[in-house]
């Protein structure tokens, strides 16, 4: 038996999952909800969900790894999402991604050591007129150049009082 600790977050998940006991058809819904609570899917939660819905943990992993929305690792304080939709690609979205990854010292999908940023990609934010575009948290930034993108990211570091700017030039 997997038991989850008694914290408000875990309890939210427990309460939600209890509506779907034994109903494996609700798996994706439950995963969405749980990721909404934790920002990712911790291993104990995955095991718990499997147990409650009556499937094996490997079945749950099979489903969650198929859909690229689900994450099994926590993300940084800010998620940077560089648009690689068609319009942004054509206007150099890849250069933005490469520059940010290079400067932050992470790969796509990775999180900086200080936990500030996770760099991800997204496909078409519907702001193609501003291509190339990226989002930092919920903010959208358009008409980027690699330099402008990096300046924006540096700006977030500067906002964080006292923190050192890593790898700045």
């Amino acid at each position: 038996m997997v038991k989850l600790p008694d914290t408000p977050e875990y309890n939210k998940v427990k309460e939600f999952v209890s509506q779907f006991r034994g109903d494996k058809g609700s798996l994706i819904k439950v995963l969405h909800f749980s990721q909404g609570v934790f920002g990712y899917l911790p291993p104990e939660v995955i095991k718990y969900i499997a147990q409650e819905l009556g499937v094996t943990p490997s079945y749950v992993y099979g489903v969650l790894s198929f859909y690229n929305f689900f994450r099994t690792e926590p993300i940084g304080k800010y998620e940077i999402r560089v648009c690689l939709g068609t319009a942004c690609h054509v206007k150099g979205g890849k250069d933005i991604l490469d520059t940010l990854c290079h400067r932050l010292g992470v790969r796509k999908g990775g999180t900086t050591k200080d936990g500030m940023f996770t760099v991800n990609t997204v496909r078409c934010l519907g702001a193609c007129g501003l291509a190339p575009v990226m989002m930092v948290g919920e903010e959208v930034y358009g008409r980027l150049s690699p330099q402008r993108a990096w300046n924006i990211v540096k700006g977030y570091y500067q906002e964080e009082a006292g923190s050192e700017v890593e790898g700045s030039g």
């Binding site: 994706i28 995963l31 969405h32 690229n68």
Partner: peptide, 10 residues
Amino acid sequence: VVRGGGAFVC
């Protein structure tokens, strides 16, 4: 309403 999970093939 059902939310997708982010897979083009879906």
